[in-house]
């Protein structure tokens, strides 16, 4: 089986927004809509200060609350573990948006449908997905790959960096963070 996952090194993230804009163009999103959002925190006090940027997007949870609340079955998990929205079924009720604890879903007001990070998966040509955010990340803060393949870069990096989901006990998320 293939189970796609991502690792994000926040210790490498300079908060440059390249992933956001790359994702927007890749997915032809309007300029105001983004699949990736950021939280920022500074800690300490002058002159000993530490600042951290954390990019957030769909965590592709194995127990995705968005999928379980979706009344039409539009939200689903594909056989590669990627949470997707079948837009032909989406009524835009936004229940999934409220259910996502990561606030990772957006409504495309051109169609009224709900959208989200798809790991840039192409279903039609069978090729390996190549997420634009990973591809464009200037500092190499993102790694993408197959969690079920212990030799994949992402599997190994998760082990070697002891990467963890962004929040413990929230969902079984498949984006792992190095903090």
């Amino acid at each position: 089986m293939t189970r796609y996952a991502m690792l994000i090194h926040t210790t490498r993230c300079v908060g440059c927004f390249a992933c956001r804009v790359a994702c927007q163009t890749q997915n032809s999103l309007p300029a105001s809509d983004s699949f990736i959002r950021y939280e920022e925190q500074e800690s300490g006090s002058y002159p000993v200060v530490y600042a951290e940027q954390v990019p957030l997007q769909c965590q592709h949870c194995e127990d995705a609350p968005c999928v379980s609340v979706c009344p039409t079955g539009a939200s689903y998990i594909n056989n590669e573990g990627i949470v997707l929205v079948n837009q032909e079924r989406c009524i835009g009720c936004k229940y999934c948006m409220t259910a996502c604890p990561y606030n990772a879903r957006i409504q495309d007001h051109r169609t009224g449908e709900v959208e989200k990070c798809r790991f840039c998966v192409w279903h039609d040509d069978g090729s390996v997905p190549e997420p634009a955010c990973v591809d464009t990340c200037v500092t190499g803060a993102r790694i993408f790959g197959d969690l079920d393949d212990p030799t994949s870069e992402v599997s190994q990096a998760i082990v070697s960096h002891n990467a963890k989901p962004i929040a413990a006990g929230l969902t079984r998320a498949k984006i792992y963070y190095v903090r």
Binding site: Q26, Y76, L84, N86, E88, W122, H123, D124, D125, S127
Partner: peptide
């Protein structure tokens, strides 16, 4: 299940 956007953006 294939969603429109995916099919649209993979090729060509």
């Amino acid at each position: 299940m294939t969603s429109r956007a995916h099919a649209k953006e993979g090729t060509g």
